[in-house]
Each structure stands twice: as structure tokens, then as C-alpha cells.
Amino acid sequence: MAYHLRSASTPSRPRSNKTEVEQQLQSLSTTISSPSATIDTMCDGLRRLGDIYSCIEKMMCTPSSQVSLCETLQRAAVEAELGRSLVVLDLCNGMRDSFMELKLTVQELLLALRRGEGVSSQVKAYVRLVNKVQKQFKKISKETTSDKNGSRVVMLMAEAREITMSLLESTSSILSKQVEMPKWSLASKTFHRTKVVCQEEQLQALEHSIGDLESGVELLYRRLIQNRVSLLNILSSYIP
């Protein structure tokens, strides 16, 4: 049922939350752009992003923020951000599928290695999958450019979205380096047993890490959906 939102003075706590979210975004941006970032870094980053989106949702649902988001000048920026969020949702959905495929490919690589079979075909399949993920970012980079004209809440949403894109792109870059053709192109039977054992351990760790990434993207996807639903409800329920 539609209802009138009443104006309210901005309380001190939401302003503090904004500062806190800004600090979290800045910290996360620095972490994922570090040359020493690993898959574990990205898994942790996905969890942190989920928490950030939850904080942004709480901020947007305060009475004062709802009024601000529905103002005529702000509404256009909000609707534009909603459109960009669809692109990121599609990307997250595609990444979930890609992580699932990558995990299966790593499992096949493990089996071939244990059987002493050639692994070049599995490695090529892995590389193809990672390249497919990286191409997705080139395709959508122009579709998610922000206009920087929204309210502070909208700006935080845009910053979170941009960091989400950066994190996922960095993840695909790191994954591409986990299995390299020169070291995996020979048949495993030509390796010493200790070398095979070492590679098995590396692949098992990679399989586990990809599973963590898959779970992290699933959590992030749900948070993005919830944010989008909350924002749509705010726009649809406000009567000027």
C-alpha cells in the first residue's frame, strides 16, 4: 500500500555509517588492487562486500534517505543506478556459472594427473574458461560508468558497484595464473612422483578456493538482489 513519507532531520548515526562505509570501501579497494592479492584475498573481499551492501541497504531505508532518494532530481540518478545494477547482477550470475565450470575442470585435471594421463587438454579447457570470464569485463566496462550526480547513498552504491567490478576482474586475472601451460603441458607420467603429489596438492587447494569464490559470489548476488528490491520498494511506495 502506498504511503506518504515524512521528512525527518538526519540523525547522527546514519552520518557515521556513511563514513564507516566509505572507509570500508577505501580499505577494500586498496586490498584488492595490491600486487600481493591472492584468491583468498578475493574470497574475503566478497564477504566484506556483502557486509557493505547490507550497511548501504540499512542507510537507504532510513526515513530521511527515502525522502531524498525519491526527490525529483535524485530519482533520475537512482533509476540510472538501478539500470547499472542489472549489468552487475548479470555478471555475477555469469561468474557463478564460470566458477562451477572451472571447479569441474580442475577436478578433471586432478583425475588425469592421478591416472598418469596427459593433462594438456584439461589445462587448455581451464585457460579457455578463464579467458571467457575476462572477455565479459571488456564487454560491459562501458555499460557501468557512473555519472556521479546522485545523493550520497547513490554515490556509495556506485562506489560499491565499481569495486565489485574491480574485485571480480582481479579474481579472473589471478585465476588465469593458477594453471600455466608450460608447467602442465607434459603427461604426468613423465614427472617424478614427488612433483605429481605437489601438483595434486596445488589443484586441491585451487578447487577449494574456487568453491569459496563460488559461495562468495552467490552471497554477493543475493545482497545485490536485496538492495535492488529495497530500492524499488522505496521508489514505488513514495507519494510526493
Rank of each mutant, 00 (worst) to 15 (best):
M95T: 08
T190S: 15
T105R: 13
I163F: 13
F99C: 06
S141P: 03
V197Y: 09
V196F: 04
E143Q: 08
P182N: 00
K148A: 14
R115V: 09
N131G: 12
Q136G: 03
E101C: 12
E143S: 09
V119Y: 07
G150V: 03
M95Y: 03
A112R: 13
L203D: 10
V106H: 02
G116L: 05
K148Y: 15
R193D: 14
L86W: 02
T144R: 02
K195T: 09
T145E: 14
L104E: 15
S98W: 12
I140F: 04
R84G: 07
I163Y: 13
Q122I: 01
A80F: 12
E162C: 05
E159W: 11
M157V: 10
R114G: 15
L104G: 08
V88K: 07
M181L: 08
R114M: 15
K132E: 14
S173R: 14
S151Q: 02
Q136K: 06
Q178L: 05
L206Q: 09
Q178A: 04
E180I: 07
L82A: 00
L156D: 00
S98I: 15
L86N: 06
G83Q: 02
G116F: 06
K139D: 12
A125E: 11
S85E: 07
T105S: 14
T164R: 11
Y126W: 10
D90V: 03
T171N: 00
R128Y: 05
S185W: 06
Q202V: 07
K135I: 02
K183H: 10
K148F: 14
L102F: 09
F137C: 02
S151D: 05
R84Q: 04
R128L: 10
S172L: 00
R96P: 08
H192Y: 09
G94S: 13
S151Y: 01
F137S: 01
R152Y: 03
I140M: 07
K177V: 04
I163T: 14
E117A: 15
Q122K: 07
D97G: 08
